[in-house]
């Protein structure tokens, strides 16, 4: 990857100190045992329980629409900017375009992230774009482009789905025409343990298989975004190694998790509408 010479990136080959702590030396088997103990995870949630969500609109005054989401420690800010003409485009496109940028702040993860988008961020941008393309009525603004920027302030797992959910809220805050509200959820699987909304530690455990030879060594992460009123999957991404028999069940579980998030967004939007009406009625009275 070419290096941006205008920035001082700091030493290239530094390591996060966590690699050398005792916690990291635990064997995989031990980690798996500690994943769910007495039906509870390390943050005392049930395996299929989502973390608590806080959402707020209008956090960036410069942007047309913006949203902030907190899923306990995971914090993401999304801003949406006015439609503008697609730059450097010769032909006329009948449908509007969406530009997405998903960025981890340099301090958001264990390892310091650089200012440029790396491969993982590019992939997440692409997935986010795919999810939002299916949500926005793109025929309403032909030849124009809407810019969406997601910035992860703190990554404690499931950052991508938090960003997609927040982007949906930010788009509706910006008044961009949409078919439906979009919500997204992540799921981790290791052996036969299914964890909704995994934290960073759980995500890491789900990324690697424990046994090579045994049959039940399924593992992986699944991200699903839903448009609920129409019952449509806007985006689906799975990694790891999961059998065909398990996937339909996982999809169903994720659908439910997505549906549970809807009221939070609705409440947040209602709050925003009430606030705006109050403001405008105040102006009229004056």
């Amino acid at each position: 990857m070419p290096i941006d010479h205008k920035r001082i990136n700091g030493p290239e080959d530094t390591l996060p100190y966590q690699l050398f702590t005792k916690l990291n030396r635990k064997s995989l088997e031990q980690k798996y045992k500690e994943l769910v103990q007495d039906g509870k995870r390390h943050d005392s949630r049930a395996p299929l329980e989502h973390r608590k969500i806080f959402m707020k609109t209008g956090v960036v005054s410069q942007a047309k629409g913006s949203a902030y989401i907190e899923v306990e420690k995971t914090k993401v800010m999304v801003s949406v900017f006015d439609p503008r003409e697609i730059p450097n485009r010769q032909d006329y496109s009948l449908k509007g375009e969406i530009y997405c940028e998903f960025k981890f702040a340099p301090f958001s993860c264990e390892k310091r992230r650089l200012h440029q988008l790396d491969a993982e961020e590019k992939q997440y941008s692409q997935i986010m774009k795919k999810a939002l393309e299916a949500t926005v009525c793109r025929h309403e603004f032909p030849n124009f482009q809407v810019d969406i920027y997601a910035l992860v302030l703190h990554n404690d797992g499931s950052a991508l789905s938090a960003a997609i959910t927040a982007a949906g809220l930010a788009l509706s805050h910006a008044g961009v025409p949409m078919y439906d509200l979009i919500t997204s959820a992540t799921l981790g699987i290791q052996k036969d343990t299914i964890l909704i909304d995994p934290t960073t530690i759980e995500e890491r455990i789900c990324r690697t298989p424990f046994w090579k030879e045994k049959e039940d060594n399924e593992h992986g992460l699944v991200v699903l975004s839903m448009l609920h009123t129409h019952n449509q999957v806007a985006q689906f991404y799975q990694s790891g190694s999961i059998s065909l028999d398990k996937l339909p069940h996982l999809i169903e579980t994720l659908e439910k998790a997505c549906a549970d998030t809807i009221p939070v967004i609705q409440q947040c939007l209602v709050k925003h509408v009430i606030k705006t009406i109050k403001k405008s009625s105040n102006v009229i009275e004056v």
């Binding site: 795919k130 449509q232 991404y237 999961i242 065909l244 996937l247 659908e255």
Partner: peptide, 27 residues
């Protein structure tokens, strides 16, 4: 498809799919 498992599934293209269609596609 790796062996008899899925190692990655990625939805591409512009539109959205019904969950049942998605499962059919996977099968």
């Amino acid at each position: 498809v790796s062996g008899n498992r899925f190692s990655t599934v990625l939805q591409t293209g512009m539109g959205s799919l019904h969950p049942l269609t998605l499962v059919d596609c996977l099968k």
